[in-house]
Amino acid sequence: MHFDHSPGLRVIDHQACVVFDRDTGNVAHIHDSITFEGGEMPSREAIEARAMELARQFAAERPGIDLDRLDILHVSPEEVEEVMVPRVDVQARKLVQQPRPGPMQEPNREAP
């Protein structure tokens, strides 16, 4: 994400973190923190707290997210941009591309 386009505003810090299920690697929330020139840069702990707060709100609306298993992984904003369907490799603690399902099978068509 490129946030340097606002007239007169310059990004001085951009951090990202992923809230994920520590057992499955499924991503519950991706959180960006952007600080513009003149703004106060939040601490790592403040970013984590806000990310977890939002993930819990989203989880209340979506089934299948176990709040007791949520964990946070800090990543570069560029890493988030590079993956279409993100998940976390829980062993390596790294953001990866979730495997896509195989190609759709053609329906069985019999000639008349």
Score class of each variant (00 low, 15 high):
residue 41 M to P: 01
residue 59 A to G: 05
residue 32 D to I: 01
residue 75 V to Q: 14
residue 9 L to H: 14
residue 105 Q to L: 14
residue 66 D to F: 05
residue 106 E to H: 13
residue 57 Q to L: 09
residue 45 E to W: 00
residue 44 R to W: 09
residue 99 P to Y: 03
residue 66 D to T: 11
residue 104 M to Q: 12
residue 29 H to P: 07
residue 4 D to W: 06
residue 97 Q to I: 03
residue 104 M to W: 15
residue 35 T to G: 01
residue 53 E to L: 11
residue 11 V to N: 04
residue 50 R to S: 08
residue 14 H to E: 01
residue 80 V to K: 05
residue 1 M to A: 01
residue 55 A to F: 08
residue 42 P to E: 04
residue 1 M to F: 02
residue 29 H to N: 13
residue 33 S to A: 11
residue 112 P to H: 15
residue 30 I to W: 00
residue 73 L to D: 11
residue 76 S to H: 15
residue 31 H to Y: 09
residue 54 L to I: 15
residue 103 P to T: 07
residue 53 E to I: 07
residue 21 D to Y: 12
residue 75 V to F: 08
residue 80 V to R: 09
residue 57 Q to S: 01
residue 1 M to I: 06
residue 43 S to F: 14
residue 98 Q to M: 11
residue 44 R to Q: 14
residue 89 D to A: 01
residue 6 S to M: 12
residue 96 V to E: 08
residue 101 P to W: 02
residue 65 I to L: 02
residue 25 G to T: 12
residue 90 V to C: 12
residue 1 M to W: 12
residue 3 F to W: 13
residue 77 P to S: 00
residue 29 H to A: 03
residue 62 R to N: 12
residue 100 R to H: 14
residue 8 G to C: 08
residue 112 P to W: 15
residue 13 D to N: 14
residue 108 N to L: 11
residue 72 I to D: 05
residue 79 E to G: 13
residue 65 I to D: 05
residue 56 R to S: 08
residue 15 Q to F: 00
residue 24 T to G: 02
residue 57 Q to F: 05
residue 43 S to D: 05
residue 52 M to G: 00
residue 97 Q to R: 06
residue 99 P to G: 10
residue 8 G to E: 04
residue 43 S to N: 06
residue 55 A to I: 07
residue 57 Q to R: 15
residue 74 H to P: 00
residue 79 E to V: 13
residue 5 H to C: 03
residue 77 P to T: 02
residue 20 F to R: 08
residue 22 R to A: 00
residue 106 E to A: 10
residue 33 S to R: 07
residue 57 Q to A: 00
residue 29 H to E: 12
residue 89 D to F: 04
residue 63 P to T: 08
residue 47 I to F: 06
residue 57 Q to I: 08
residue 30 I to F: 01
residue 36 F to R: 04
residue 106 E to Q: 13
residue 28 A to L: 01
residue 44 R to N: 12
residue 58 F to Q: 03
residue 34 I to G: 02
residue 107 P to Y: 14
residue 11 V to I: 09
residue 19 V to T: 07
residue 89 D to T: 10
residue 23 D to A: 09
residue 42 P to R: 05
residue 59 A to Q: 04
residue 82 E to P: 03
residue 94 K to E: 03
residue 100 R to P: 09
residue 84 M to C: 10
residue 18 V to D: 05
residue 109 R to L: 08
residue 73 L to P: 10
residue 20 F to I: 10
